[in-house]
Every structure is written in structure tokens, then in C-alpha cells.
Design a protein around this nucleic acid. Structure first.
Lengths: 224, 224
DNA sequence: GCGCAATTGTGAACGCCTTCACAAACACGC
DNA sequence: GCGTGTTTGTGAAGGCGTTCACAATTGCGC
């Protein structure tokens, strides 16, 4: 049943390669070796080659990779070769930042509709869209056919929104709300948590500060 | 030298546990077993116990964990027991969403200053702060003493900003710009990339759609 | 053409995190 | 106080992704 699973980290890196390749393409570079990609991406050449090997063979020994061909291929893999419509739920601060995000276009990602449940907001313009009633998400997506959704609402409303998105046919959700979403097994969720990111940095930033100050603590379990 | 290294995934989960515990605390729950935490967090009980074991022993066999005590302990570990000031660079859409983000306070994270290089913006109010000149970041942070910084500027400016932050004493950077940052080894960087997240979802969402449609592809390397 | 230098693709080794499974610890009732 | 049931903490096993290392392949110059 499960085709040779592609590791998620590989997919994440694919997006990084794509960015590097697009940059190189704009600079007029036509060929890149895995070694050079390591330079630009910070990801090891071996890792790069292994990652690609999940999908076939794209390079020429002794030469490297055709930038243009590889861009095309990675876009195919990530389904970014045709425009991907996205449903955004939550016309607040984060939603606002997302509709105004300039880098989506180059990846053929397009926020195709915005929803909210606040009747004061519904009907108002948001970017170059009009905010629609979340209750109509299924109806609206019957037209759009989006498979991706973004949840940018407060935590207490997130699960409800997720259910609505799934009901509307969405199978991939990017969740900005700090909650665990329960979704059917065929739906994929990725969480973005500023708090989590900052918490990890907080640990490291201060940990290192202690070390630098010569306060290096002794092994692990302090048992306090 | 290196005290028993704590895996980064463990730190990430610590932030999740903390959120769950804070919720439970508000609900008046005083004790939680690892089993129950699995319920609320979606992270396995064994994983939870193993994660905590890096830092000591906090539970009572046969009983579970004191919610209050565990909150306190995790906050200590993540250095969220005292207020953490943060420098935000970039007074654009994303920066705007961050200063308006309501959930920082509960974790004692506070954006203590905002910077930009656009002289039109400098001096203007931003949330309840005044936008300052990025050129003054070192000077300003001499007062604040922040160890954490957030980069929310366009990719082409990100490296310069990172250098300035590091120069100002920042040792942890949350980077929203789609670029690889070069920083000294004592500085930690975490990247948040909407594009990357959506790209991964895009792959899965459509991949699954193909499967659901009965187009189940056969094993692995399709070599096409 | 043919040798040389560069670079790919990939099986195998490695390392790290997760999962397992169980002994030790504790509460509670009788 | 002692047995029973629950839950923790943690070594050991397992799984998965990364790194290594090298044979195979190609371009290029002569």
C-alpha cells in the first residue's frame, strides 16, 4: 500500500533547493553541482543527492544538474507546477500578513479565498479579496477546488474551522493556532508555532550565555 | 564539556507540554498522568516521560505529575520563568502580526523594541512601541539586554540584519526571511518558512488525492 | 579515441531519536 | 502493615534519516 515513503525532511529540503535554484536561474546560472548547492543552501551535497534519489536521476556525472530542468522537476514533485489555490481562514493579523506575503506567487501558491466568522468583517475587502462567511466555505470551495487551507484564528476556534475545511475538501492544513487539531487520517496538518520556536531559542540562547560566562553547569540531571 | 545534550525535538515538545499544562491549570486540574498528557497533546506517554527524564524526576509513581510544579519546572528549563525581551526587526506585515500576537504574554515573551531601516517608518508608533532605526540596535539593546531577535524583513536584507543583531548581543534568531543566514557558531537560528510548509502540504495533499481516486501508484521509485 | 578529472547515484555504516517493556515507587483500602 | 493497582523512570531494542565512500558515468583535452 505505502509506496516507498519519502521522508518529510526530504520534502522540506526540496523547497529549499527550489528556492536556491530559482535564485540561480535568475542569475543566469545554467548548471549547478551538488557541491555548489551545498554552498548556497547549507545542506550537504550528499544529502542533496540522496534526497533527489527518491524521485529519480536528474544529474549528469562530471557535470552537475541543469538548473532549469531541476526546477521543473521539483515543482512537479511538490505539485507547484500548476497554480495551487489556498483557502485562508481568519482575517486577523496573521491572515493579513499572509495575503500580503510577496513570495507566494513565485511558487504558484495563491490565496484564493478568505473566510472569517466575524459578521462585521464579512463582506469587507481583504487584500484583493472579499472576506466570506466561514459557514459558506464548502459552497465556495466547490468552485475553487482547493486542497490546501490555512487556519489563522484563535486557538478556541481552530478545531471547528479545521472540521469545516475538511468538510470542504481540504486535505492539507497549515495551522497557526496553538492547538492540536483532530483530523481524519487522510488530512495532513502542519503546525506553525511562534511560541514553540521562541521557546527553543530561549533555551539555547540563555544556555549558551551561561556557558560563555564560564558558568558551565555540570552534567544533565540537576535533580533540584 | 557538553552536558548530556538535550535533543531539539524534546525542547520543541516541552513547549507543547507547557501549553497543555497551562490549559489544565486554568481548568483547575492539579494532577496529570503521562497517559492523560498523551490525550491532550497527541504525544505518546513514553515520549513525554523520556523527554522529562533529561531534566530530572518530576512525577510520583502511581499518581502522576503536579500540574503546577511541572509548569514551573518547564518554564525554568525554557527560561520562561522571567520575562524574555525580544528585538523585532521589520515593521511590515509579519512584524505587525507579531506585535499583535496575544499568546506571547502567557509565556513571558515580550517584544521590547521594533526596528526598521525605512526612514519613513522610523519614529512612528507600532503597537505600543516606537519604530527605531536598525542602525541603533546595538545602542538600544545595551539597555534592554535581549538575547532573542526576530527577523521579519525581505530576504535581501536579512543577512545584514542578522549581523546587526548578533553585534547587538543576540544569540537566538527567529528568521522569517526565506534565506540561509550565516551566523557565528554560538548563535542559534530557527527558520519559519510559510512556503516550505505549504510546499510539503502541497505534496501530500495532492499525493493523497491521487490515492483516494484509486490511482494508487505502485511501489516507490517510479523512474519516470 | 582515450585517459583524466569531475561529479553523480546508492548500498552500507552510523548515529540519534523513538518506542518498548519492566522494575521500582507510591497510594489506597482493608 | 501488607497486598493490589497504578504510574513513573529508564535501560535496551528498534527504526529512520544522515553520512560515508566508492563504483559508474560523463565531459574534455590532446
Amino acid at each position: 500500500m505505502t509506496e516507498t515513503r519519502v521522508p518529510v525532511p526530504t520534502l522540506e529540503r526540496l523547497a529549499i533547493y527550489l528556492r536556491v535554484l530559482l535564485d540561480a536561474h535568475e542569475s543566469g546560472i545554467q548548471t549547478l553541482s551538488s557541491q555548489e548547492i551545498e554552498q548556497y543552501s547549507g545542506i550537504s551535497a550528499a544529502q542533496f543527492r540522496k534526497d533527489l534519489s527518491y524521485f529519480g536521476e536528474f544529474g549528469k556525472p562530471g557535470v552537475g544538474y541543469s538548473v532549469e530542468a531541476l526546477i521543473e522537476r521539483i515543482e512537479q514533485i511538490l505539485r507547484l507546477d500548476a497554480e495551487q489555490p489556498i483557502l485562508l481562514v481568519g482575517a486577523g493579523n496573521i491572515g493579513s500578513a499572509l495575503v500580503g506575503y510577496p513570495n507566494f506567487q513565485a511558487h504558484r501558491l495563491r490565496i484564493a479565498a478568505v473566510f472569517d466568522n466575524n459578521f462585521v468583517k464579512i463582506g469587507r475587502p481583504f487584500g484583493d479579496l472579499i472576506i466570506e462567511d466561514i459557514a459558506r466555505v464548502r459552497q465556495v470551495n466547490a468552485q475553487i477546488g482547493a486542497r490546501l487551507g490555512i487556519i489563522a484564528v484563535p486557538a478556541h476556534a481552530a478545531q471547528e474551522v479545521a472540521d469545516a475545511l475538511v468538510d470542504a475538501g481540504v486535505t492539507g492544513i497549515l495551522n497557526f493556532a496553538p492547538t492540536i487539531l483532530r483530523v481524519p487520517p487522510h488530512v495532513h496538518v502542519r503546525n506553525v508555532s511562534f511560541l514553540q520556536e521562541l521557546a527553543v531559542l530561549s533555551y539555547h540562547a540563555v544556555e549558551d550565555a551561561l556557558r560563555v560566562n564560564g558558568q558551565a553547569r555540570r552534567g544533565g540531571k540537576d535533580g533540584v
